[in-house]
Structures are given as C-alpha cells and as structure tokens.
Design a protein around this nucleic acid. Structure first.
Length: 440
RNA sequence: GCAGGGAUGGCAGAGUGGUCUAAUGCGCUCGCCUUGAGAGCGAGUAUCCGUAAGGAUGCAAGGGUUCAAAUCCCUUUUCCUGCGCCA
C-alpha cells in the first residue's frame, strides 16, 4: 500500500497517476483514494470539533459535581453531542474504509528501470546461461526466445516428458493422488522423493553460508497477518481458507513478511536476511487448463524463499544479490536458463520491479518459470507496520523477496534436462552427496 | 481441554471512575559543560489531522455501563504457571 501522504502532495500524486498508466491500469483507484481522503479529513475535522466541545462539558461537569452543583443540564447537552458524534464517526469510518479500499488497489510506484510495456512477449531478456538441449522442431522458437545468444546442442533423440518418464520409472503416483486428494496432487516416490528433499537442503545450506537465517515457517496464518502480507486477488485465486479466520500460506514470503508485524527494528540490525522453507498451498483457480498433467503446476509444493528487510537505499543492491543467489544455485544444478525483466503491464501490485528466472525445458520446447525476485520497497511493510528508528524518527522498512527454488517444479526441469537416450536421469554433481546416488 | 494469573510508550514498570495532561527509571536524540570520552545538567522522545496555533485519539482487540473508563462489565486474541491429552 502506498503512503497516503503521496496522494496529498500534488507532484507525487501525478507520479502515482503516471505509474498507474504505465502499468496499463485505470487511474480510478488513485483518484478515488484522493477523493475519499479529502472527505475523510473533512469528516474527521468536524467530528473532532464536536468531541472537543464534549470534552469541555465533561470537565465542567466534573467541577460542578465536586461542589455538588446541579449537573442535569450538562448531562442532557452531553447526550445530544454523543448522538452527533456517533453520526460523524460513522461517516468518518466509512470514508476511511473506502479510501483504503481504493488505496490498496493502487500499484506500487514502478522502479526507475522497470520496462514500460504490456504483454509477456515484451518483457526484456536480460541474460541467458548454460547450454540448452533443443529438439530440432523447437530450434526456431528457441532462438527467438533466447535472443539468438544462447549456446545449445541439438538433441538427436526424443526426450520423454517428465510425466511419462516419471510414471515409467515409478517416481510418482498421480492417479491415486487424484483419487484421494484431487487433481494437481501427487505422491513423490522413491528416488525422486529423495531428490526433492536433497534439493531443498542443498539450497538452504547454500543460503546459510551467505549469511541468511534459516526459517522453517508455519503453514497456517491468521486473517490479520495474511490480509497484510498478501494481495487482494490472492484471496480469490490462490489462498485456501481453513477454519474461521485462518489460511494456508501460498509461500513462505507471507509468514516471513509478517514476522516483524507491528515491530520496530533497530536500524543497525538491517539488512535482515531470511531463508524460509515451507510447504506452499495454491488453489490455482486462475489457471484451470494450464499444465494439468504431471507435477509442474500443483496445489502443494515446497519452496525455499529468500526474504530480506533492508534500508530504503539498499533495495536495488540487495535485489541484485538475491537474484545472483538464485542464479548460483540454478547454475550449480546446471540447468540452462534465461532472466526476464518483467514489464510494467505484467507486474503484480506489490512489485516495483520483478525479475523472473526461467529454465529451458527440452521436452516442452520453451522456457518455464522457476522463480522470481521482486523489489517491493515499502509496499508490504507499510501495511504490516514494520519500521526502523533513526535519530528518534521512525521510517518504514523496505523488503524484498526472491524464490530460491521450488520443488517439485524444479524436478520437472531436472528430468527434462538430464535424461539421456536410455531414459536415465543423471543427478547434478552438487546434489550427489545429498542424494547418495548419481542417477535414477 | 480445565483452573488460576497477566497484556500499559523503544524497554522495564507505577497507576483500581474525574487531579492521567499516563509517574519513575533505562535507552535514544539534541544542546550545555569537557582537550576528548564519560559523568553531570537542560530539553525532547506514542499516533492522526493541521503550515502553525491547536485539536483529537491512545493503556492487547472489539463491544458495553457512565456526564466521565487504563481503571467497572461482556466477548475475543495472546502470553505465563499448574493439571490433563498428544507425535
């Protein structure tokens, strides 16, 4: 949520409108925010005048009561004021709610170097890494998707989809998962399940070496926290509700973001780096027909997430650092990928800037998202009321989030990239000490 | 799950209907003093609206009683202690 004072400053208000236009959104939310803020201030002022009057009468009453004078007239006057105050208060609350409803739908101010464009195909390819294994039929598409700059080798055999190979090798059971849980659930079996655990542990070790604090977070959050840590759209499309006022987390970002809710962090404690591991639960309501087969898009998965609280001036630097961490780990796993600078029209409201890491998938013949890292400035932390103190003044902390890796999604990338002609899946070297085997 | 006791500013902690405009201490900020540091002294240090003057709010959250609530009542959340249950 944006700072309300930005809407009150004419110059900054114009920046908000511009940012919204650059996101290809209607500026209505910003305009209504300003309108209701003005109305709220007016109602608040009126209400406070009445309250001041009432407070005066209360004091007068106290003095008269002390010397046993008659206070009946004052009581009546006081009651009258109460009714007026109640009325104005109702109005005030109403305007404030409307103001913040609209305000919460205004997107974060775009970062200075976010690409202004609309549509996935207009997001900039920042970088490619690795040597992609490409089927002949996908060559043309591959070149386009990698800016013609990425190394590749043409496959001289037909790789099997992760679903076919996985079923063939008894690495997961999807039918029985569907029977007892529903579609998009899975049992991971045998060596693939070990690989799943190994990858997570590998990523955690790597981040801990870089000074991250490892956090194994709760999977359920209360309404208060999730409302501040998630976006409005998530409640419809992503979040599972459990019980009256509790939700399953869709990412550890949500628990980590809310960790310091309503707290003041000492300035010299920043930056605070968290590596969070949690299961993630997503309804995937907005993607009914996408990736229905296999374990690529599922309702439940495990993820290692980087989450950092920092000073405003450090956001850009730390964002780069987090993306590098993610890259290093994917490089260690030897998965070829590209980095995408997500364009303004495709950004979620919280992100001022977002960089996606997409792996090359030899069977699907395209790049698929493995994770993303966002600069969110003070957008999340303002709602969560997380501040730091500097010279007796309090300021909102900035925060950033970045995937490190998510499994089983990353398993599909490994299966597609590391199967040989005979259908043997080779385990990346760095993982072998974790798995205890070299191939599946 | 049961019983009992708590929740007050950055922290500790006083305050059991009007004099709470929330004491006091610590911490922090600024100033004075000092060669410097410290000590000492003085001022400041919850939130919102307002250029300001000022006003309003605030004692876990929400509701209620009252002319008047940190203080009394109800509901909820949460922490502690003991008992019970449980991997």
């Amino acid at each position: 949520m944006l700072d309300i004072t930005l809407f009150r400053d004419e110059k900054k208000y114009l920046e908000i409108l511009k940012s919204e236009k650059n996101r290809f959104k209607d500026t209505k939310n910003a305009e209504e925010t300003k309108k209701y803020d003005d109305l709220w201030k007016k109602a608040k002022n009126d209400c406070e005048l009445k309250k001041a009057e009432k407070n005066k009468i209360t004091k007068e009453t106290a003095e008269k009561a002390k010397v046993k004078e008659n206070i009946e007239d004052l009581k009546i006057k006081s009651k009258q004021l109460d009714a007026e105050i109640k009325d104005l208060e109702k109005k005030q609350v109403e305007y404030l709610e409307l103001r913040d409803k609209f305000r919460s739908e205004v997107g974060n101010l775009l970062w200075h170097n976010t690409t202004i464009a609309q549509g996935e195909e207009n997001s900039k390819i920042l970088k490619t890494w690795g040597t992609a294994k490409v089927q002949k039929k996908d060559l043309e598409n591959f070149k386009k998707l990698s800016n013609n700059k990425m190394k590749f080798e043409q496959l001289n055999y037909d790789p099997k989809s992760h679903v076919d190979l996985g079923l063939e090798k008894d690495l997961f059971d999807l039918e029985r998962a569907a029977k007892i849980s529903g579609s998009r659930f899975y049992f991971l079996k045998n060596k693939l399940a070990i690989l799943h655990l190994s990858i997570l542990r590998f990523a955690i070790d790597k981040l801990m070496k870089k000074g991250f604090n490892f956090m194994y977070t709760p999977f359920i959050v209360n309404k208060d926290a999730i409302e501040k840590a998630a976006e409005l759209a998530d409640f419809e499309e992503t979040l599972y509700k459990v019980g009256e006022d509790q939700f399953l987390i869709a990412t550890a970002e949500q628990t980590l973001a809310a960790f310091y809710m309503d707290e003041i962090i000492p300035k010299d404690a920043l930056p605070i780096r968290f590596a969070g591991l949690s299961s993630c639960f997503r309804k995937e309501a907005g993607s009914r027909s996408k990736d229905t087969r296999g374990i690529f898009r599922v309702h439940q998965f495990d993820k290692v997430e980087q989450y950092v609280f920092c000073l405003p001036e450090d956001s850009e630097k730390i964002h780069a650092e987090m993306i590098t961490n993610e890259e290093e780990i994917i490089q260690d796993l030897e998965i070829p990928y590209r980095l995408i600078d997500i364009c303004s029209g495709d950004l979620n409201n919280t992100a001022a800037k977002k960089i996606d890491l997409e792996a090359w998938m030899p069977v699907q013949g395209t790049f698929r998202e493995l994770g993303s890292g966002s600069i969110t400035t003070d957008f999340q932390t303002r709602k969560l009321n997380i501040k730091y103190e500097d010279k007796n003044e309090k300021f909102v902390v900035h925060s950033l989030n970045c995937t490190t890796l998510a499994s089983p999604r990353i398993l599909t990338a490994l299966i597609e990239n590391f199967q040989d002609e005979k259908g043997i899946i080779h385990i990346p070297k760095v993982l072998q000490s974790y798995t205890g085997f070299k191939e599946i």
